[in-house]
């Protein structure tokens, strides 16, 4: 970063009005290795870079299609939320940020819930969506988790939750913090009903999300090289003023430190989860 990249280049870009380095829709640039990939190719490859194996962040629809038998599932309706409960405004109004996020998304908030069959087992799957306001957890996401648990209890099925979040949604202040105990109750209800709760941690899962329902799974799985932490690396670096160890807070580091059961490559996710569900649900010989 210097005068050239900070000042001159943005200015030139403004003049010629170019906004991204690659044309939209057609090409995808790997966020890890920078390889240019044909969009169709990376979609077919479950959004994994064929060059460096980087797992790109994906939304609920891609997950659901990859997981359920024949890509068939039913979306579960989520109850509406109290919009902008604090009348929050930073440099922008929260309502404007929400509107912008909704315009870019097929969903109303940073979570979607679906019901369908994986192998022989009916399952509820909830997916947090990092692409919607950083996946941040507010009352809407809380509603998603609570509804998913209720649906699983009603249908007597396991619940699989894919987590992805920058943390709590600051624009909902204390009410987002309160989603930590709220969602914990949802997990406890599931446990009281004797139903499996499987968590798949994806990149990134941080803050209040990690410090509540994301770490309470009966089985804890992570995608490769996902950032999973309570305090983010930058916060820690600023606090202790030391370099952080290699691979710090990545899936492999968590596995080594006994925090998760396994790391599963996205190409093996459906197969692994299906087998796991079968072992937990179809118990008789």
């Amino acid at each position: 970063m210097n005068w050239l990249t900070n000042f001159v280049r943005p200015k030139i870009q403004n003049i010629i009005g170019q906004k991204s380095e690659t044309p939209d829709n057609l090409w995808h640039k790997c966020r890890n290795c920078g390889q240019l990939l044909y969009v169709n190719d990376i979609e077919k490859n479950l959004h994994i870079c064929p060059n460096c194996d980087h797992h790109e962040r994906i939304g609920p629809t891609e997950r659901f299609k990859n997981l359920f038998n024949n890509g068939e599932y039913k979306l579960v309706d989520l109850p509406p939320t109290n919009e902008d409960p604090l009348k929050f405004k930073d440099q922008k109004k929260y309502t404007e940020r929400l509107k912008a996020a909704r315009n870019k998304s097929e969903f109303q908030d940073a979570i979607a819930v679906a019901y369908g069959k994986m192998g022989t087992v009916n399952t509820v799957v909830a997916v947090q969506n990092f692409l919607f306001m950083g996946g941040s957890m507010g009352v809407g996401v809380g509603n998603g988790i609570v509804t998913a648990a209720e649906k699983a209890i009603e249908k007597k099925t396991p619940l699989i939750l894919f987590t992805a979040a920058g943390g709590a949604r600051m624009q909902e202040g204390i009410l987002s913090l309160m989603q930590m105990p709220r969602c914990t109750v949802a997990v406890q209800r599931l446990r009281d009903a004797g139903l499996p709760y499987i968590v798949v941690l994806t990149d990134p899962t941080t803050g209040g999300v990690t410090a509540s329902y994301a770490m309470l799974g009966d089985i804890q799985i992570a995608e490769p090289n996902a950032l999973i932490c309570f305090a983010g690396p930058r916060v820690i670096k600023d606090t202790i003023r030391e370099e952080l160890p290699d691979g710090f807070q990545r899936s492999e580091y968590l596995l080594e430190h006994g925090m998760i059961d396994m790391i599963v490559h996205r190409a093996k996710m459906k197969e692994t989860l299906t087998q796991l569900l079968s072992l937990l649900v179809n118990k008789a010989a």
Binding site: M180, P181, T184, V185, V187, Q188, T210, A211, S212, Y213, A214, M215, L216, I228, C229, F230, A231, V235, I236, T239, I240, E242, L244, P245, F248, Q249, H257, G258, M259
Partner: peptide, 26 residues
């Protein structure tokens, strides 16, 4: 807030907070 440090993260700060919240509710 909870301490943001290498050791704290290494030993599962997030899980420890989650379990404490859970215990309150149990």
């Amino acid at each position: 807030g909870a301490y943001p440090g290498i050791g704290a993260e290494e030993r599962g700060q997030a899980e420890a907070i989650a379990r404490s919240t859970e215990a309150c509710l149990d």
